[in-house]
Nucleic acid binder design. Structure first.
Lengths: 262, 262
DNA sequence: CGACCTTTTGATTGGCGTCAAAATCTGTGG
DNA sequence: CCACAGATTTTGACGCCAATCAAAAGGTCG
């Protein structure tokens, strides 16, 4: 196990332009004066190199995080040491809020590609909610989106075969990538950067890498996708969407309760 | 399809002693004066007869609910009309907060046994959060518990075989029932009331009723459980717990972030 | 160039779905 | 209290999707 230590960036000021907090989903729609106020709480930015773990399941974390750039995985480790991927975190996602009743996070988070995260002291969350109640609602709403996705996976797990599961995951990531990482999207080829290995896809949808490979080859043969060199081309979104019952609205970044949104 | 209309109880005052709001998980730990204040928002109590739907997926609900008494199911309906059970709601559970980005609830809720729910206007949630920020945190925490459970199911879905899935569900319900429905628990026989059919179990864990039956018969033969007449006896919790990697802490009712709890 | 990771392909196995039918339980009306 | 209809449980035979085992063929990076 390679284990580099996490680097802490000095002087967050210079980073602001690179990663304007304004663009992050969590803070969208918060009034500008409030926004400045929340900036006070911003604590430290980290660079997390690939394969390095941000936090490990079972630990008592003092921080919650916002992912600024990069791809990360949220996973649990089974008794036998196998990695169970819960979901992939993309820029704008919030990490580490969920804990069990002892305050321990229930999953680990590692970087797939070099990632930049922003830490926020957990102890100040309540203070922040008091000042900016809409933030609490927004956090809850992001939680709802995650919950909806998670529930969807749970509900359709055994009804879905390998084709459906994989098609769904590809579309989910394809769309989520476009929402917050437009610079990675190439409209000419309808493709996005896609750093996952087939094994990681398998760990996410609950299939072996071998079977994932068979399905992907099929998709390629049928002219639905083209996936090479860390780049995913969607050639026939229509068909993929049909076979997986994928609904864009499920990955929308702003699932706020309607009556609270006005 | 039988379809009785939902009865609305007049004069909530008389119900207070029956279903003291003080005991509900959502309001545990809230200061008494605040508690009175939240009572203002309590709106209507409903009795939902068995098989009647409280709300249907895709609707714009004006209320969120707390389940006071009874068993309910949260489910989604697939394209082919099959019911996909997400989870079972037990007294103390909060229902209907999650919505998608259009404000529509993503699941339906129906009563398994005669149930009593308490409606709360969604439009007043923000107001309430402002007055009582800890309530927002508590709501988020309950959401975290659900999310943890949901994630667990998602993560281990394909690693778990039928034995493990069913053992886990039985233990989950066994413990959750004890938390809020102690009057249903019989320490003599280590049993609880258990209104689920084998088909409902199957819909929840993603197996056919036929296969659920085979597994339950096995469990019975091995002396692990005894399930008859709407009553579940746990005979060998040790073995069930081992085989399903069940952890009591996952269903604990008070999963509040540790650093916020003081 | 060599070690290691990832992708690809084939052969075999097994868990669970599907289909079918019988047995048992439940409750409702006469 | 019995009778009967519908729901639920139980059991058997058979088939298929994806796991497992094995091994070869690229790819990538130091």
């Amino acid at each position: 196990m390679k284990k580099k230590s996490i680097q802490i960036r000095k002087e967050a000021h210079t980073e602001c332009t690179q990663c304007p907090i304004r663009k992050l989903a969590l803070f969208q729609g918060v009034a500008p004066d409030r926004l400045e106020w929340t900036q006070k709480f911003r604590d430290q930015q980290f660079v997390v190199p690939p394969k390095v773990t941000l936090y490990r399941e079972g630990s008592l974390t003092d921080y919650v995080y916002t992912l600024f750039d990069g791809w990360m995985v949220m996973y649990q480790t089974s008794r036998e040491g196998k990695r169970q991927i819960l979901r992939f975190a993309l820029p704008g996602d919030f990490l580490g809020f969920q804990t069990d009743q002892r305050g321990m996070v229930s999953h680990s988070v590692s970087a797939l590609s070099e990632s930049i995260v922003c830490g926020f002291p957990r102890s100040r969350l309540e203070e922040m909610f008091k000042e900016t109640p809409s933030l609490a609602l927004r956090l809850a709403s992001m939680g709802s989106r995650d919950m909806n996705l998670c529930q969807h996976h749970q509900a359709f797990r055994s009804r879905k075969d390998a084709y459906e599961s994989i098609a769904f995951l590809l579309l989910e990531l394809f769309h989520r990538t476009q929402i917050h990482m437009n610079h990675h999207y190439d409209p000419k080829t309808n493709s996005v950067t896609f750093p996952l290995t087939q094994e990681e896809i398998g760990d996410a949808v609950g299939l072996t890498n071998v079977h994932v490979n068979r399905i992907l080859r099929q998709f390629h043969k049928l002219g639905l996708i083209n996936c090479h060199h860390k780049r995913l081309h969607i050639l026939d979104e229509e068909k993929l969407s049909d076979m997986s019952e994928f609904d864009k609205s499920m990955v929308s970044s702003n699932p706020l309760a309607y009556s609270l949104d006005q």
